[in-house]
Amino acid sequence: MRALRPLLLALGLAAAAAHGAGAQGGDTAPAEQAVGGLSQNRVSITAGFDGSEIFVFGAVRREAPVPQDAGPLDVVITVEGPTLPVTVRRKERVLGIWVNTDSVRIDEAPSFYAIASTGPLDQILSETARLRHRIGFDKAVRTVGARSQVEDPQSFLDAVVRIRLRNGLYNRQDDTVNLREETLFSTEVQLPANLVEGEYSARMYLVRDRQVQHLTQQVITVRKDGLERLIYTTAQERPLLYGLLSLAVALAAGWAASEVFRFLRR
């Protein structure tokens, strides 16, 4: 991985240069565009899967030099897993024991969410820009419409973020994006072992004056593979066969152990 990095950076740069030469810009094209890449577009979950590390890198393509009066360039990189609804329950003390009482169904919460940036998020991006692009835990985890029956729905949203931060599913690190001479940028994103399958999107935002100037997106496919895939699809598509096979394995193992021990005792 470490040895690979300079090569990947070089490739990114070459790609950026090639793009720049090829596309003779339309009028509306922004002055600066991000061109990004990933160390891998596929994550295979196999028996030995214990998390993965993805290297996200890219370069800034410019038609003209940077204007003198523009603020410094910042880069924000997010990797977001499939968004699924989630039910949050809260315990309260009832008759001396702790019982689930209130619950809130949260319509949108990414199953995985990592944010890396060149600086503190709320300083380099305005509130409206974060809202518009849904950058940050508070913007990504939300309920649509106000039909919640509890007094403090915000504490339920906070709980999702807190629990997933603890499980390594959410991750926010300011100052972990490397930006070289306002041109080359890169960061590493840790994927934990408890991933769900699906399409993950890696987004790279170029930020100036607290506004998003340009955004590019790459897709990472997370999929079970090999034996893991076979077991999973059998369980989903042929549940009866799968159940009978599980029973057969259990009975065979029980019988084998009994025979082995009988043999050992002789």
Partner: peptide, 18 residues
């Protein structure tokens, strides 16, 4: 465990029905 206050009062579950 039922009587002592848990460190995390909230729990997450799949968001099936309403």
């Amino acid at each position: 465990d039922l009587v002592v206050q848990p460190t995390e009062l909230y729990s997450l579950g799949p968001g099936g029905g309403h």
